[in-house]
């Protein structure tokens, strides 16, 4: 999927964040020399195509007191994972849930679910709930806590090309 130069410009303009003014789309339109209706139409189209997943807030988990996060990983029967994955993805405080390839013998796990909590105990409780949900479909599991952020550049879109 590719996006037009206009869409790229729009995305770049709102990458730093939507302005906190009553009419933010009009403000963006002014910045880009176009109309508010045009901006809103293009944003809706980008959401429709899945390029933009949502417009919203990303809270800082740490500032919310959610200082513990664990990457829970599960060795789940592949067929069952298709059915159970969506249920785990829908759980509160599970922020990412993916099916990935295993790398046996080092790595038998195929289902990854990131779990957030105020303490490791809370994270463990949520992990237990996932285990319950997976039941017999799960052969093995583990949890990996992050101990340090070694690098965090994040994803930024370049203004030109790419």
């Amino acid at each position: 999927m590719s996006i037009s130069a206009e869409d790229r410009q729009l995305i770049a303009a709102c990458q730093a964040g939507l302005p906190f003014v009553p009419a933010p789309y009009a403000a963006l339109a002014e910045e880009l020399g176009t109309s508010e209706a045009e901006i809103m139409g293009r944003l809706r189209a980008l959401i429709g195509r899945g390029v933009i997943r949502r417009i919203g807030i990303a809270p800082n988990h740490y500032k919310l007191g959610m200082t513990a996060n664990g990457m829970t990983v599960w060795d789940v029967d592949d067929e069952a994972a298709e059915e159970l994955g969506p249920l785990i993805g829908a759980m509160e405080d599970v922020t990412h849930c993916y099916l990935r390839p295993r790398a046996r013998p080092v790595w038998p796990y195929n289902l990854f679910a990131m779990v957030h909590g105020g303490t490791r105990d809370e994270v463990e409780e949520k992990r237990a709930r996932i285990a319950e949900l997976l039941g017999d479909a799960c052969a093995d599991s583990d949890i990996l806590y992050s101990t340090a952020i070694l690098k965090k550049t994040g994803l930024r879109l370049r203004k030109n090309g790419g």
């Binding site: 933009i52 949502r54 990303a58 790419g162």
Partner: peptide, 20 residues
């Protein structure tokens, strides 16, 4: 936003949809 409670506010991209 100023206090860092909000990391970002705006559109979130599906990275793969951008072609990367």
């Amino acid at each position: 936003k100023e206090d860092g409670v909000i990391t970002r506010f705006g559109p979130f991209l599906d990275a793969a949809a951008m072609g990367g």
